[in-house]
């Protein structure tokens, strides 16, 4: 049994990883052709954007250097070949290796999103517990809070938090300074809307689990209300939220674009915004690919967690 179990897990993982490679290849292809459709001359962008007064000769030289004069199919194969060996090219605007640029920015954004996801989970569990316990009025307040939190846009929430905690109370820095204190407002800004959303999902499944026959069996066995929640209901409540966490991580990455910009925090999100305005195609491509890679890996991780939490998924 353990042997076949391990083999089954390995096979599952192999299938998922193969799928991940396919997804990444599809995304790289999509980005490659989508960027062809963007109006404007990439050679011009390399030489300083639409405003630059580059000569025809200079443009021709750049086209040759970057292979822009070759047929599209050849350019595509070249680009894919470079991707295979991990070469993301050179940033047009910063004249630096894209992979190196991303490596510098990656950890800050990862820290921000992972902390935000963890915070969102804790807040959601708290909200869902509150909403299924307590008085009728308390439950109404908790579910109202969920909806408000889920509906708030990041940029507005960021402004309100800065006004409240930095400008008025002076407790926290308005921009993201190094150190834990600087992380608080960006993390909370990212986490709150997600927490509202996750709490709605969790509350429903928590309430279902608490009213289910197996919860009645547990109570009739002498289990305390806390025991019923911890030993039985929480796991049932967590299942849909775990499944959603892969998607949630993706939304956090796009949320990071706004949050990093508002709090002037270095990271992938802010770099992406700048790369897009600069028409820096290699950098946009690189960041998009790395985000996609992170998203795919997190999705595999949440699926694996799902299988741990719900043994029924392992059967077939």
């Amino acid at each position: 049994m353990p042997v076949s179990g391990a083999r089954r897990v390995l096979r599952w993982l192999a299938v998922r990883l193969a799928g991940a490679v396919f997804v990444l290849w599809s995304i790289a292809t999509l980005i490659f052709f989508a960027l062809r459709l963007v109006p404007g001359d990439p050679a011009l962008a390399i030489l300083g954007g639409p405003g630059s007064q580059a000569s025809e000769e200079a443009l021709a030289l750049v086209r040759q250097e970057y292979g822009l004069d070759r047929p599209v199919s050849e350019q595509y194969l070249l680009a894919m070949g470079r991707l295979l060996v991990g070469d993301l090219g050179t940033s047009y605007s910063l004249r630096q290796d894209v992979l190196g640029l991303i490596a510098e920015q990656f950890w800050g954004t990862l820290l921000l999103t992972v902390l935000a996801l963890a915070t969102a989970w804790l807040l959601a569990l708290g909200l869902a517990t509150w909403a299924t316990r307590g008085s009728r009025a308390g439950r109404a307040v908790a579910s109202a809070l969920e909806i408000v939190a889920a509906a708030v846009p990041h940029f507005w929430l960021a402004s309100v938090l800065i006004l409240l905690f930095s400008t008025t109370l002076g407790m926290l820095p308005p921009v993201s300074v190094p150190g834990p204190l600087g992380l608080v407002l960006p993390v909370v800004t990212l986490a709150l809307p997600l927490a509202g959303f996750l709490a709605q999902v969790m509350r429903e499944s928590l309430a279902d689990a608490l009213e289910s026959p197996f919860a009645l069996s547990a109570r009739a066995r002498g289990e305390s209300e806390t025991g019923v929640r911890l030993r039985h209901a929480v796991r049932h409540a967590a299942l849909p939220a775990i499944s959603l966490s892969g998607w949630a991580f993706g939304s956090l990455i796009s949320g990071a674009v706004v949050v990093e910009t508002v709090f002037a925090r270095p990271g992938l999100g802010r770099s992406l915004l700048k790369a897009v305005t600069d028409r820096d195609i290699p950098l946009v491509t690189g960041i998009a690919l790395v985000s996609a890679l992170a998203f795919v890996l997190v999705t595999i991780a949440t699926d694996a967690l799902d299988r741990v939490a719900d043994p029924r998924l392992r059967g077939s």
């Binding site: 026959p213 197996f214 009645l216 069996s217 009739a220 066995r221 289990e223 796991r235 029924r312």
Partner: peptide, 22 residues
């Protein structure tokens, strides 16, 4: 909590849903 399970046991209809499926 001492009486439930200790003094009085309860068996419900369908164990598929009356035992925690996880």
């Amino acid at each position: 909590r001492e009486i439930r399970g200790g003094e009085i046991g309860l068996v419900l209809q369908d164990a598929l849903v009356s035992l925690d499926p996880l």
